[in-house]
């Protein structure tokens, strides 16, 4: 317990590894910049990688929120995101504009995530972590089945939220789509940060996740807070799904399956309990996948998921707490 407290504190103060981590990140950013200045292809890949990485990052953020609230990895997070994207598709079919559907979908996702936690996760949570994980696996399959059942497995197309405009900066062409994806994700993440950092609800959610027993003593409705945490995660997942869809140009039920794996890698890379780490991890995975597939002949596009898997293994072996996470105390 003592180690728990001190290592937590170290993590918050930055700990010994922190300067090194920032140094590495700065070096990576500098490398990307230099590369981008020297090669237009490199620059384009980097920009695209950042946009895709933002999507991985926001899904990773959703996973981290759930993990912090309930110590559960939600395997259904990606499928939930996919399902809410289909809901947006349906709303658009019924005549809503893209952005109306976007907002409505986020609201629906918030409610859906909250209700799922209250009805399906909460009852098994006290039993064991494994039980909760199995329920999320069941949800994965269930949601997949329901979406296929309702909408079928064929491609659907949604209107493009950002148009097809392409900016030319120097010799580099940057699709407006990528800028839009990036901005939407960053704004969503910022709003969530503000919610957690500056509102009473956010404080209650943090307290409930950190110390449920003490939070209850000061009058925080802990169960409710954790459920809302799941709701928020579902909302962020919906953002991920809605931003992933235009990057794939089509909507299909498998939309989020590879992205879930990248998001796992991002979350582990950033540290499973670090929201900022999740986003940075997402960007890192997005950019490195793009560059590696292009420049490393041995790793072709089929190996993107195995690459992410390798990242997960490498991080867990070298620095299990990730770049920004707290050391899980598990002295065995």
């Amino acid at each position: 317990m003592v180690t728990a407290a001190t290592s937590r504190l170290e993590g918050l103060r930055g700990g010994a590894g922190f300067p090194l981590v920032s140094l590495v990140l700065v070096a990576c950013a500098a490398g990307l910049l230099v590369g981008s200045l020297r090669s237009a292809t490199f620059a384009q890949l980097t920009v695209q990688g950042l946009a895709l990485g933002a999507v991985y990052g926001i899904l990773a953020l959703a996973l981290v929120l759930v993990y912090r609230a309930t110590r559960v990895i939600n395997f259904a997070q990606g499928e939930l995101a996919m399902a809410t994207t289909y809901i947006a598709y349906q709303l658009i079919q019924w005549g809503l504009s893209y952005w109306e559907a976007f907002v409505a979908t986020l609201a629906i996702a918030l409610v859906l995530g909250t209700v799922l936690e209250l009805t399906l996760i909460r009852p098994v949570l006290h039993r064991s972590g494994i039980a909760a994980v199995i329920v999320t696996v069941g949800l994965f399959v269930l949601i997949d089945g329901i979406v296929n059942w309702i909408w079928g497995g064929d491609f659907k197309s949604m209107p493009s939220p950002f148009g097809t405009k392409i900016y030319h900066v120097g010799g580099v062409s940057i699709a407006r789509l990528y800028v839009g994806m990036f901005v939407v994700v960053v704004v969503s993440a910022l709003l969530v940060w503000v919610l957690f950092r500056f509102t009473k609800l956010g404080l209650g959610m943090r307290a409930a996740a950190l110390r449920p027993a003490e939070a209850a003593l000061v009058g925080v409705r802990v169960d409710w807070m954790l459920a809302v945490g799941w709701g928020l995660a579902a909302l962020l997942g919906a953002v991920a799904g809605l931003m992933a869809e235009p990057s794939q140009f089509f909507l299909q039920p498998t939309l989020m399956q590879p992205i879930l794996v990248y998001a796992f890698a991002a979350a582990v890379l950033g540290g499973l309990d670090s929201p900022a780490g999740a986003l940075i991890g997402g960007l890192a995975i997005g950019v490195s996948l793009n560059l590696v597939v292009q420049y490393v002949p041995a790793i072709s596009s089929e190996l993107q998921e195995p690459f992410a898997f390798a990242v997960i293994i490498a991080v867990l072996l070298l620095k299990p707490s990730g770049l920004f996470g707290h050391q899980e105390v598990r002295r065995v």
């Binding site: 069941g138 994965f140 399959v141 269930l142 997949d144 089945g145 296929n148 059942w149």
Partner: peptide
Amino acid sequence: HGQDVVFG
């Protein structure tokens, strides 16, 4: 995909 619904 009905089986997935039942499985899940």
